[in-house]
């Protein structure tokens, strides 16, 4: 599932949590980038990351190319509508301005970098690692009364339910199509009406399975565990620390630039 690409790079060897933390620092960095120098720094970071992760440039290029329409629209919208003052060229409501150009380019580049970094993350981390990392990051929710044990259980059950519910949803969809529900053709209104016959049975199926599972768990003595410190088998490698520090540095630099 997902776009994981097996490999042996530095990134592949890093633990999921580290990568996720780095990702958030870099994410913030991308969002804060405002100057040309800042973008250049991002460019360097991205280039280094791609090289370290061992992902082909062509692959990356494909991902970006797929969204070229989206990018063009955003760029052009900003170019033409952003700021009516200091325009190079004006016509009715269209104003091409340098500010618009900068803004448009900025937004597009930010999204591109976001894509690049998230692609690197997903390509070098297996879904299992990612869910594990996600679980750790959701720990703060323990404050609200959901213990870590419960959280781990919920996430792992959720992942297991996905293929099961997917199959059920597919079967329900086909059953309703066989009865005449219109998904393939017809007005949007017809298609909207056909949503109910799929969504309701899918929820019923999901809740039914959840019911059975909960019953089985309770019958086997499962009880909600109090919030407890997770058994941390954390062996922090040098490279983990390096990665986090580096990402942090990139972020801070962006603030300064």
């Amino acid at each position: 599932m997902g776009q994981y690409m097996p490999g042996n790079s530095v990134f592949h060897k890093m633990r999921g949590t580290t990568k996720l933390i780095c990702f958030f620092w870099i994410l913030t960095a991308v969002l804060l980038t405002d100057s040309a120098a800042g973008f250049f720094l991002l460019f360097l970071t991205a280039g280094a990351s791609i090289a370290l992760a061992g992902i082909g440039l062509r692959n990356m290029g494909k991902t970006i190319a797929r969204l070229k329409v989206f990018f063009s629209v955003i760029f052009l919208m900003n170019l033409f509508f952003f700021s009516p003052e200091q325009a190079w060229w004006s016509c009715w409501i269209f104003h091409i301005s340098p500010a618009g150009f900068e803004q448009g380019a900025g937004v597009v580049m930010r999204v591109v970098f976001l894509l690049v970094f998230s692609r690197i993350l997903i390509a070098t981390t297996t879904p299992v690692e990612l869910t594990g990392a996600l679980e750790i990051l959701l720990l703060p929710l323990g404050v609200f009364g959901i213990s870590t044990g419960e959280l781990a259980m919920i996430l792992s059950v959720a992942v297991q339910f996905i293929p099961i519910l997917s199959k059920e949803a597919d079967q329900i969809r086909k059953a309703q199509i066989a009865r005449g529900a219109k998904f393939e053709s017809g007005h949007l209104r017809d298609r909207a009406k056909s949503v109910l016959p799929v969504v309701i049975p899918v929820f019923l199926a999901a809740f039914r399975r959840a019911d059975e599972l909960a019953l089985a768990m309770e019958a086997r003595g499962y009880r909600k565990t109090k919030a407890q410190r997770k058994q941390c088998k954390f062996r922090v490698h040098v490279r983990d620390v390096q990665a986090v520090v580096l990402s942090c540095a990139v972020c801070i630099t962006q603030i300064l630039l």
Binding site: I154, V157, V159, F161, L165, V202, A206, A210, A214, M217
Partner: peptide, 14 residues
């Protein structure tokens, strides 16, 4: 509680 937790898992899956 258990049921809530499992229902949440099902919702996440959905």
């Amino acid at each position: 509680e258990v049921k809530c937790a499992v229902l949440t898992a099902a919702s996440i899956a959905l």
